[in-house]
């Protein structure tokens, strides 16, 4: 009995969400550019030209999946989300969390054994997988520093630039 009640309640709550107009729905204007810098550590942030990318793809769902409620580009997603409504937020970081491998998050994901989206990548991977795969396809630049400059910490980390090993470097082994 209890269980059924809870189900009904959950259903009602979820249904009520469907009627709430998304904050960034198709109605609001897309930003011209976005500074992606929440993860900058080894590399500086990327000043992402949103407008330009929108022109190229001409379809929000290429990057934003089904979040605008206008279907999903990916067949796999479309199986469930072809007719689903838009979501309250469309920013990458609202679904793709910064730290996907914390104990807390792993527990959360596993708590519901029926959960479908077990395999949701974190924010860093969401950016890179989306950007790079497309850049490869479109023959756009794919080098790390083509999109974002390496920081000094980064050079230290990679033992590169000012921190390159003495007597090492490309020429030594490459030729």
């Amino acid at each position: 009995m209890n269980k059924r009640k809870r189900l009904v309640l959950t259903g009602l709550i979820m249904a009520s969400f469907l009627f709430v107009v998304p904050v960034f729905g198709a109605s609001s204007e897309p930003p011209a550019s976005i500074l992606i810098d929440s993860l900058s550590y080894l590399y500086n942030g990327v000043n992402f030209d949103h407008e330009q990318h929108l022109e190229v793809t001409n379809d929000c769902s290429v990057c934003h999946h089904h979040c605008f409620g206008n279907g999903a580009e990916n067949e796999q997603c479309a199986k469930c989300h072809a007719n689903s409504n838009g979501t309250s937020s469309v920013a990458c970081g609202d679904c793709h969390i910064q730290k996907p491998f914390t104990v807390q998050h792993i527990r959360e994901m596993e708590a519901n054994p029926k959960r479908y989206h077990l395999d949701m990548v974190g924010l860093k991977a969401a950016y890179h997988l989306r950007c790079l795969n497309c850049h490869v396809e479109m023959d756009a630049p794919t080098g790390c520093v083509d999109c974002h400059e390496r920081t000094d910490t980064g050079n230290q980390f990679y033992h590169s630039g000012d921190y390159a090993p003495i007597g090492g470097g490309a020429g030594k082994v490459h030729e």
């Binding site: 590169s160 090993p165 090492g168 082994v173």
Partner: peptide, 13 residues
Amino acid sequence: EPEIPFDDFSVFD
């Protein structure tokens, strides 16, 4: 310290 920087892809050869 590596002999070759970690951003040097010549190691793949």
